[in-house]
Amino acid sequence: MLSVLRKQFSAILVFFLIVQGLLMVRMSIASDVREPENRASIMLRHIDDLWRGESSHSLFSMNIRTARYSRTLRLEGWSLGTDLTLVRILAPKKEQGVSSLKSGKHLYTYLPRVDRTIRLTSSMMMGSWMGSHFTNDDLVQESRREEDYNIAISYEGERDQQAIIEFTLMPKPNAVVVWGKVVLVILADSLLPLSEIFYDEDLVQTRKIVFSDFKKLGGEIRPATLRVIPSDKPNEFTEITYQLLDFGVPLEDNFFSLGQLKRR
């Protein structure tokens, strides 16, 4: 029963992940501040908002290393609002032109080699992201951290010759998160993230995200590189590096069409 769904095929799924636009560029618009905030929440909100914008255009590369292979993809992406995303593979040559469009619930992928567009439903998506170095949490995390976690500053000061702030995020009892604890380290002066470590309920470390390569992207200093490392396979990782990231680009709804999908 369902044995097929259980298996993974991570190349497409990583691709779809990007399409979902949830890896780095979270497209939602910052919501209004409601409750009185503590200092930790304000800082975390700043980090959450690092990758939010109404529309975006980006060039980025993706480096995947597993025990079996390592490969690098170069991609270009556009987004508008929360519902429209278009991503195209630029390299390697074999996959060049493969593009994917997310429009609301529907997801279309154009395969130039066979010149066909396939349509995936969101229920199909459910089955496909597992097994990668990302979790479904990355995918569906739409809520802000402070809604799901009790946040406390657990360390503040010098570590590895850097002034840092360490947050410990404990999930609220009914929060829809798989983790038992998340530890986030940011730079004290710029409030930029350095690392995020995820633990299970027994407080065993399960994966780690490392941010690096701080540079000016989209008008502000941001970490251009993010690397996800599964704790049980420390030699494997998935790394994303932005070469270009622009927010507030002029884009129309009709840019995200099936015709655009096939354009090379």
């Binding site: 369902l2 769904l5 089955g127 097994g131 479904n136 949490d137 633990y199 299970d200």
Partner: peptide
């Protein structure tokens, strides 16, 4: 129905 079930360690498909 069908669903994905995830823990901090892994996720699997199921019903």
């Amino acid at each position: 129905g069908q669903a994905m079930f995830a823990s901090a360690h892994k996720s699997v498909g199921g019903a």
